[in-house]
């Protein structure tokens, strides 16, 4: 074991399983799947032929305030995943009972694993 790890960091060609073509192929498949089906699932009000696709600036932008606010960064990402984020925000709502509930649920799930003879 001694020495091998350094070799791996310094000479990355030893022992790496790194097939970029496979990753590109997987990425391509994902892109196709999302293009055909994903957009319908996440945003069904998207319309290519309207003004939605154009950049949009509102208000009076002056020299000083000419920057995008941090809440508006990655807006498209947030908007397209808002169903996921709605669920997640509900979990992180600050309700202390919910926080304790998850501990109980995890313990119960592990108990089920013990009962099933898996653990």
């Amino acid at each position: 074991m001694n020495g091998k790890i350094i070799d791996l960091i310094i000479k990355p060609e030893i022992g790496i399983v790194w097939i970029p073509l496979l990753l590109v192929a997987v990425f391509f498949v994902f892109m196709v799947v999302f293009h055909v089906w994903g957009r319908k699932f996440f945003r069904n009000d998207y319309n290519e032929n309207s003004d939605q696709v154009k950049p949009y600036n509102s208000g009076n932008l002056d020299e000083v305030n000419y920057s995008v606010k941090s809440s508006n960064l990655y807006w498209g990402f947030k908007k397209s995943m808002d169903r996921y984020f709605d669920i997640m925000k509900k979990f992180h709502d600050g309700d202390l009972n919910n926080y304790a509930k998850w501990f109980v649920i995890v313990v119960a799930a592990c108990f089920l694993l013990i009962g099933g003879g898996l653990l």
Binding site: N98, K101, V104, I105, V107, A108, F111, L112
Partner: peptide, 16 residues
């Protein structure tokens, strides 16, 4: 959520 946690409590009680 409420029902799930209640069920979890029963499971824990049973196993304990």
């Amino acid at each position: 959520m409420k029902l799930v946690s209640l069920l979890a409590m029963f499971i824990i009680a049973g196993f304990m």
